[in-house]
């Protein structure tokens, strides 16, 4: 029972981080139809930016988070403006190639400035444990789940209620019609990249805190693909459910079976689900009527 509870908490924490990382991917795909293969590297860069502000520059936690957010915003804007915008109208394969190139570039830049060995960063979340239904569960995982839930809720409210959030969904639905409402499509594209970079920063910082500040962060980001295909490329609630399923699944398989199998399992489930539901679990159904 205690193993079960522990795996549950670990799985939910992984899943919550995956959901945050996948959220950025889905935003970009929904608003701009670009498949961003650099989402994992956004996590990596985010974590290293925070490390730089927090450890290298020695800023207080809140200031370091703010610096991270500002830098992530900047990266989002620059990537959209100078890498993706010139590609508007090019065919999807070229755009995919560009995002793969971007992922390699970001990874190389991180290696160039920070080297390949892990960086030590003091723990931000408490390392203590709490007793919970007879099991000892780590507090930091519980906090990761909480923080991710708050951030995801904030994003959801943004998309449902705010003018810019609704405008973003409008652009995702029908670009030309959005233009007739005076919505600047370019600005929305930039906004999508910014939000993706910021959510990846938060995911990266949380992940680094429960694992380590190193190159593997980008590898974890690769799991975004099973998550989004499971949840549906264009569904925000889908990324949350998809993230949690993949997170739980890998932890349970790794705990009860073996860790090697756990790395394959997400992809097996992915194929099975695609066979039954090609748009993923929550993919927007194409509305068809006259």
């Amino acid at each position: 029972m205690s193993t079960f509870l522990n795996l549950l908490v670990y799985g939910l924490a992984d899943g919550a981080i995956l959901a945050l990382a996948a959220l950025g991917f889905v935003l970009i795909y929904k608003a701009t139809s670009v498949i961003n293969f650099a989402q994992g590297e956004f996590l990596l860069v985010g974590a290293y930016m925070f490390y730089t502000a927090f450890v290298v520059l020695g800023l207080p936690l809140v200031a370091a988070v703010l610096v991270g957010v500002v830098v992530a915003t900047l990266i989002g804007v620059l990537v959209e403006r100078f890498i993706l915008r010139p590609m508007i109208g090019e065919d999807p394969i070229s755009i995919i190639m560009v995002t793969i190139g971007l992922s390699m570039l970001l990874k190389a830049l991180v290696q160039m400035f920070y080297g390949t060995s892990p960086k030590s960063q003091p723990a931000i979340l408490p390392r203590s444990s709490v007793e919970f239904l007879g099991a000892t569960v780590p507090l930091n995982r519980l906090l990761v789940i909480l923080i991710a839930a708050v951030v995801l809720t904030a994003f959801t409210i943004f998309f449902r209620r705010s003018r810019h959030g609704i405008a973003m969904r409008a652009v995702a639905d029908d670009q030309q019609a959005a233009m007739t409402m005076g919505i600047s499509v370019r600005r929305i594209f930039a906004l999508a990249w910014v939000l993706a970079a910021v959510s990846a920063l938060i995911a990266g910082v949380l992940l680094a805190d429960i694992s380590a500040v190193d190159q593997n962060l980008a590898g974890f980001g690769l799991m975004v693909f099973p998550v989004v295909i499971l949840g549906g490329l264009d569904s925000v609630p889908g990324t949350i459910v998809g993230g949690l399923i993949i997170g739980l699944l890998t932890q349970f398989v790794s705990g009860y079976q073996d860790p090697g199998l756990a790395t394959v399992v997400p992809y097996v489930v992915l194929v099975l689900i695609l066979l039954v539901r090609p748009y993923g679990l929550f993919g927007e159904t194409r509305i068809e009527r006259v």
Binding site: R163, I166, A167, R169, A170, D173, D174, A177, A178, E284
Partner: peptide, 18 residues
């Protein structure tokens, strides 16, 4: 060209973007 996946109210809000 209504925004198909948005509600009626959200369509109208989008119209008032400016």
């Amino acid at each position: 060209h209504v925004f198909e996946h948005l509600s009626v109210a959200e369509n109208l809000v989008a119209g008032a973007y400016t």
